[in-house]
Amino acid sequence: MHKSAANPFKKTRRFADFYAEWFDALERTLLPLLRDSLSSSSSSSSTSVQLSAAVHALHCHLQSYYSALNLAASSSSADQLPRLLCPPWRNSLERPFLFLGDLHPYVFTTLLRSLIENDGDDSDDEGAGVFLEDDCNQLSGRPWQVLTAWKNPSKHTISRMEQIECGVRLMVPALWDRAKAEQAHFADRVADQWMKASSKKKETMATVGKAAAAAAQGLAGVFLDANRLRKSVLADIMSATNLYQAGLFLEALAQFLVGLRDPELLEKFQHCPVKMR
Rank of each mutant, 00 (worst) to 15 (best):
A216L: 11
G167M: 08
S4R: 12
L112A: 09
R178N: 11
K10D: 13
Y106V: 04
S198Q: 11
P105N: 03
S44Y: 02
N91H: 09
L51C: 03
A215H: 04
L132P: 06
F23R: 05
L115T: 02
K3R: 14
G209P: 09
S114N: 14
M205Q: 12
N70S: 12
L103A: 10
A179T: 06
W150V: 04
K196F: 07
A254L: 00
S198K: 13
L62Y: 03
G218N: 03
L51R: 13
S42H: 06
S64N: 02
Q138K: 12
D134G: 09
R277D: 13
Y106L: 06
V222T: 13
S4N: 13
L33V: 05
W150R: 04
I164Y: 12
A179M: 12
I158M: 05
L33H: 12
F223C: 12
I164T: 14
A215S: 14
I237H: 06
W89H: 15
E203N: 03
L132A: 12
R160T: 01
V168A: 06
A25C: 04
L31C: 03
D24V: 09
E203V: 09
C136I: 02
V168R: 04
V208S: 07
I237V: 14
E21L: 13
A16C: 08
A78M: 00
L115D: 00
T241R: 05
L26R: 10
P88F: 15
K231W: 00
G129N: 01
P88L: 12
R178K: 14
A78G: 00
S198Y: 08
P153S: 00
E182K: 10
T12D: 04
Q217E: 15
C60T: 02
P105F: 00
W194C: 07
S48H: 11
G127C: 05
W176G: 08
E251F: 10
R95L: 07
D188R: 15
W150Y: 14
K201Y: 11
L34M: 04
L38M: 05
T47F: 01
S232G: 07
A246P: 04
A16S: 11
S199Q: 14
D177P: 06
Q183P: 06
L147D: 11
P87C: 08
A197E: 12
R160G: 01
L81V: 05
A187F: 08
D122E: 15
M238G: 11
G218M: 07
K11M: 02
W89R: 00
K11C: 08
A235W: 06
V258K: 15
L139C: 03
V172A: 00
F23K: 01
K201S: 08
P143F: 04
D122W: 02
S123W: 05
V107E: 11
A6N: 02
P153K: 00
R142C: 02
L100K: 01
P32Y: 03
R35K: 07
L93N: 01
D125S: 08
